[in-house]
């Protein structure tokens, strides 16, 4: 496996901290109480992500990458600092407020797909559009499923689909929501290489259409296709930048 080389944003000379960011974290800390111990998951963390960027977040277990994803996805609140999503401060917003922000801003892809077993592929995708209150949810869902190559399997239930197909339905669900930020937590973790690559192709294409995609993964190889790679360790950013030589095509990945 080829180790990706990462240049810092400073090396790239890019202005990554700016008002145009879709995702913006300032002085963010997140601490948990585990019994009598305080565990610091993120420490004085700053991050800005511009619209349409494909970001891969790398790091070993316990580095804080999932916590980061939860904060960006407004699934959790900060201990200190500020999190803004499309300009809205969600740092310590109430649950209903965060739910409202998620509805219109974020969509998710999970490692274990999390499709609704009682709904068909089409209905699962419709759900994404329905929740985001997109007009003509069925048409959007059909188009999204066509786009992920499942136009012929609209009426199949999740258990009638392979793992890769289920994850493609999950991608279509995110696509149909039309939200500007897509968060993917180990999206290829349960898939074989070929199927994993299909999913990554979709995500790259998705980012190319203007959606900000953040992928959390252990798989360093995936970082090679990113516009930006953020590596975490012990709750801090240890490197942040584009892969050396710029992103490669998904087809070039090997793991």
């Amino acid at each position: 496996m080829q180790e990706p080389s990462i240049e810092t944003m400073a090396q790239l000379g890019a202005d990554v901290v700016g008002p145009g960011s879709v995702v913006s974290l300032r002085d963010v800390s997140k601490r948990y109480e585990v019994g009598e111990t305080i565990v610091t998951a993120l420490e004085t963390f700053d991050l800005d992500v511009a619209a349409g960027t494909f970001v891969v977040i790398l790091g070993p277990s316990g580095s804080g990458k999932t916590t980061l994803l939860n904060l960006i996805g407004a699934l959790d609140t900060v201990t200190d600092g500020t999190v803004r999503l499309s300009g809205r401060d969600v740092s310590n917003a109430s649950r209903p407020e965060r739910a409202a922000v998620r509805r219109g801003t974020v969509s998710f892809i999970f490692q274990t797909f999390n499709l609704f077993p009682g709904l068909t592929a089409l209905e699962n995708v419709e759900f994404g559009a329905d929740v985001a209150k997109r007009a003509d949810a069925t048409t959007r869902a059909r188009a999204a499923l066509d786009e992920v190559g499942l136009g012929a399997r609209l009426d199949h239930f999740p258990h009638q689909l392979s793992g890769g197909e289920q994850q493609r339905v999950a991608v279509a669900r995110a696509l149909a929501s039309g939200n500007p930020v897509l968060l993917a937590d180990e999206p290829t973790g349960e898939l074989d290489v070929a199927t994993g690559k299909q999913i990554l192709e979709l995500l790259v294409a998705y980012a190319g259409e203007g959606t900000t995609v953040l992928v959390v993964t252990h798989n360093r190889e995936i970082a090679r296709i990113a516009d930006r790679v953020i590596e975490l360790s012990s709750g801090r950013i240890v490197s942040d930048g584009a892969p050396v030589g710029g992103p490669v095509a998904v087809a070039d990945l090997q793991w």
Binding site: A99, V101, R103, N114, F116, F127, V131
Partner: peptide
């Protein structure tokens, strides 16, 4: 519970 969590993650009101 996971179905409900997924719905809530997508912003479905409680």
């Amino acid at each position: 519970t996971r179905e409900h969590a997924t719905m809530l993650a997508f912003g479905t009101p409680v």
